[in-house]
């Protein structure tokens, strides 16, 4: 355990934890868009930047990645920190003007109108890579990835086509902070809409109630990875005892 100070309050924390984890466990809010506790931290959005002082040296760091240390002094809001957050949200607002999440966060950070020209065809994607990380680390299929470099970077399926390994689980949509990925179950089909591709998945019909309840590919994947007999999924959870 180490002792550290965040915004004037003293905390004890386990050494492996990051500043962001300790802060959020203790009710101190640090804004972020690319962090999710279920996947490895990435440090891309830079909204969670904070000021740390350690051994007399002051610097700005990404709190989602910076490990806590004995005697660390953290300030979550300083003029420098606020400048980064404000500018980052201005940049994201210009990139994704239609994203309500970005708009709200911009408002919270005191940005009411965009200062840069707005991107058309913006798809609401801020390239936080939560979708690709959850797909790789949690689901374990890597059906999507980030392609190209720099300003040309995009979240995509291989060749912008139907991803052969995608199981249609929708975890990517679940973690997407800006709702750039969504899905809808229409009749016997799940339609998964991503910024540059739309994919359709056949849904499994419950042999008891007749409801379409989950993508067949997803159930096959679960059966295979968990070693469960595929027949176990003939009945939907609602119809089980």
């Amino acid at each position: 355990m180490v002792k550290l100070t965040i915004d004037g309050r003293e905390f004890q924390a386990e050494e492996e934890k990051t500043i962001l984890e300790v802060a959020s466990e203790n009710g101190i809010h640090i804004p972020t868009l690319c962090y999710h506790e279920e996947v490895s931290p990435y440090g891309a959005c830079r909204l969670c930047m904070v000021e740390v002082t350690r051994k007399g040296r002051k610097r700005l760091v990404a709190s989602c990645l910076y490990p806590v240390a004995e005697g660390l002094v953290v300030r979550t809001e300083t003029p420098e920190v606020n400048n980064i957050r404000r500018t980052v949200i201005e940049l994201l607002l210009a990139r994704c003007p239609d994203s309500e999440v970005v708009q709200e966060m911009a408002h919270d950070l005191g940005v009411d109108k965009p200062i840069f020209s707005l991107e058309e065809d913006n798809h609401k994607c801020i390239l936080c890579a939560l979708c690709t990380r959850v797909c790789q680390e949690v689901v374990g299929v890597s059906a999507i990835t980030l392609v190209n470099r720099g300003v040309d970077r995009q979240m995509a399926t291989p060749f912008y086509d139907f991803s052969e390994v995608c199981i249609g689980c929708g975890s990517c949509s679940f973690v997407c902070p800006t709702r750039a990925i969504s899905f809808e179950d229409v009749g016997d089909t799940r339609v998964l809409t991503m910024p540059h591709v739309t994919m359709e998945f056949k849904l499994k019909k419950c042999s008891k109630c007749g409801k379409y309840w989950a993508p067949e590919r997803q159930l096959e994947y679960i059966a295979k990875t968990a070693g469960i007999a595929p027949e176990a999924f003939d009945i939907c959870p609602d119809c089980r005892d």
Binding site: F116, A129, L146
Partner: peptide, 16 residues
């Protein structure tokens, strides 16, 4: 052109 595009300040900031 050489920015990897991972973080927002570099990707979006250099473009602006």
């Amino acid at each position: 052109g050489e920015s990897c595009g991972k973080c927002v300040p570099c990707r979006e900031g250099l473009k602006r």
